Simulated scan of single mutants.
Amino acid sequence: MSAFLQLRDVVVRRQQREILHGITLAFQPRTVTALVGPNGAGKSTLLGVAAGDLRADGGDVHLHGRPLRDYKAGPLARERAVMPQEHGVRFAFSVEEVVAMGRLPHPPDPQADDAQVERAIDAAELQALRLREVQQLSGGESARTTFARVLAQDTPLLLLDEPTA
């Protein structure tokens, strides 16, 4: 089975410090990969590079054998979803509206979109909160809303930063 996403010799520097040095890692389809390490070890940086949200100073990242940098935002968002550590929404959207934002990378299909949003809300146990404004949620409720948005995006790859926090 070939790698879905592959990082080769990835290097990231911040100021004079090398955060990541020569990281090679392959993400295989239908597997769960956990990055474990102390605070400040570079886990979030590595996820940022893997997601294409952060450019590496060296090495390369390939998705389906193609350089990640060659992907436009829309096609990339249909291949991978990202749940960042910080998941605050600064506008008065409802939980349901935020979850539905996960469907934006896909061509509009109201029936399929509604069904996927409903599945994501159910999976994150947000039925009772669906109409509440996200700015009124607790930290855990906000995290579950972001997780539901990621699920609604319906991608083959999920990159979750601190998913249990």
Rank of each mutant, 00 (worst) to 15 (best):
G37F: 14
G37K: 09
P38H: 13
N39W: 13
G40L: 14
G40V: 11
G40N: 04
A41H: 11
A41I: 10
A41V: 14
A41G: 12
G42I: 11
G42D: 04
G42L: 07
K43L: 07
K43F: 10
S44H: 09
S44N: 02
S44V: 05
T45D: 05
T45K: 01
L46W: 05
L46R: 01
L47D: 06
L47T: 03
G48N: 03
G48L: 01
G48W: 02
G48P: 06
V49D: 01
V49I: 12
V49N: 02
A50S: 03
A51Y: 02
A51V: 02
A51Q: 00
G52D: 01
G52E: 01
G52F: 05
D53G: 15
D53N: 05
L54Q: 10
L54E: 03
L54P: 09
L54Y: 09
R55H: 03
R55T: 14
R55I: 09
R55E: 08
R55A: 15
A56T: 04
A56Y: 01
A56D: 00
A56P: 10
A56N: 03
D57Q: 00
D57I: 08
D57N: 12
D57K: 07
D57S: 06
D57Y: 04
G58K: 09
G59R: 09
G59Q: 07
G59N: 07
D60V: 08
D60Q: 15
D60R: 10
D60M: 02
D60A: 11
D60S: 13
V61W: 02
V61S: 02
V61I: 09
H62A: 14
H62R: 15
H62F: 11
L63G: 11
L63F: 15
H64R: 11
H64S: 00
G65H: 13
G65Y: 13
G65M: 08
R66W: 12
R66F: 12
R66Q: 15
P67M: 10
P67T: 11
L68K: 07
R69D: 06
D70K: 12
D70C: 13
D70L: 14
D70E: 15
Y71A: 09
Y71H: 15
K72L: 13
K72E: 07
K72W: 05
K72S: 14
K72M: 15
A73L: 11
A73H: 00
A73T: 07
G74A: 06
G74N: 14
G74T: 09
G74C: 05
P75Y: 07
P75E: 13
L76W: 08
L76G: 05
L76A: 08
R78I: 09
R78D: 00
E79M: 13
E79L: 14
E79A: 11
R80S: 03
V82G: 06
V82T: 03
V82C: 00
V82S: 06
V82R: 01
P84Q: 06
P84H: 08
Q85M: 13
E86P: 02
H87T: 11
H87E: 01
H87A: 14
H87F: 00
G88R: 02
G88Q: 09
V89C: 10
V89A: 10
V89H: 07
V89Q: 05
V89K: 06
V89S: 03
